[in-house]
Computed example of a mutant assay.
Amino acid sequence: MGIPIIRKISVSVNCKQLPPLDPKVGPTICQILEEYTANHPDELLTYVCDDLDGKGHQRRIKFLRWYEHHSNGSLLALPQEIKSEDQTIYTCLIFDPKVYNEQHIQTAYEEEISLLETVKE
């Protein structure tokens, strides 16, 4: 069994005021995801919405809206919430269903989420 490769890409922006709306952001993000998975079809991607300012849920809604309107349909996105007593983490798993069985991946992902939710600090 090989060692899984985990890549982390983190993007953050610290602004004193809201940046102007850019209609190219959604299509650009979808294109990046689609090109990445086309070049790495056996990799699954996950993202976590930053919730330090309490806006994680809104970020997830925004991403899913972008995905719904701008993706080419080649990937599946499985949104999930990881809940603890004082926090909800909004996440989504993205993968190519031609490479992986959707039901198998969804079941495994939900099991991992359940394990994370039961961990006590």
Rank of each mutant, 00 (worst) to 15 (best):
Val119Pro: 01
Asn101Pro: 09
Glu34Arg: 00
Gln106Gly: 00
Thr118Ser: 10
Asn101Asp: 13
Cys30Glu: 03
Val11Trp: 04
Asp96Gly: 00
His69Asp: 13
His70Thr: 00
His40Cys: 08
Ile113Ala: 12
Ile6Arg: 14
Ile89Phe: 11
Ile82Gln: 14
His40Lys: 08
Asn14Glu: 12
Phe63Pro: 00
Lys98Tyr: 05
Tyr47Thr: 10
Glu68Trp: 02
Val25Trp: 03
Glu102Cys: 01
Asn39Gln: 11
Val11Cys: 05
Val48Gln: 04
Tyr90Glu: 13
Gln87Asn: 06
Pro41Ser: 12
Asp22Val: 05
Lys16Gln: 09
Lys120Gly: 05
Leu116Gln: 07
Gly73Gln: 04
His104Thr: 11
Lys62Ser: 07
Gln17Asn: 08
Leu44Cys: 04
Pro20Leu: 05
Ala38Leu: 12
Phe95Trp: 02
Pro97Thr: 06
Ile89Asn: 04
Asn101His: 04
Ile94Glu: 00
Ile105Gln: 04
Leu33Ser: 04
Thr91Arg: 12
Ile105Met: 15
Asn14Leu: 13
Cys30Ala: 07
Lys98Arg: 08
Cys15Gln: 10
Ile89Cys: 01
Glu111Pro: 00
Glu81Phe: 09
Pro20Met: 00
Ala38Cys: 02
Leu76Glu: 15
Ile61Val: 15
Pro97Asp: 13
Lys62Ala: 08
Ile6Gln: 12
Pro19Asn: 06
Leu116Met: 15
Thr37Asn: 14
Ser10Tyr: 05
Asp42His: 10
Val13Arg: 14
Met1Ile: 14
Glu110Cys: 12
Glu35Asn: 15
Lys120Met: 11
Tyr47Arg: 10
Glu117Lys: 03
Val25Asn: 13
Tyr36Arg: 02
Asn39Leu: 10
Gly56Val: 07
Cys30Trp: 00
Asp50Ser: 02
Lys55Met: 10
Glu34Gln: 09
Lys55Gln: 14
Gly56Lys: 11
Asn14Lys: 10
Leu45Phe: 06
Ile9Met: 03
Leu75His: 01
Lys83Ser: 02
Thr46Asn: 01
Leu93Pro: 01
Gly56Phe: 11
Ser71Thr: 09
Pro4Val: 03
Arg59Lys: 15
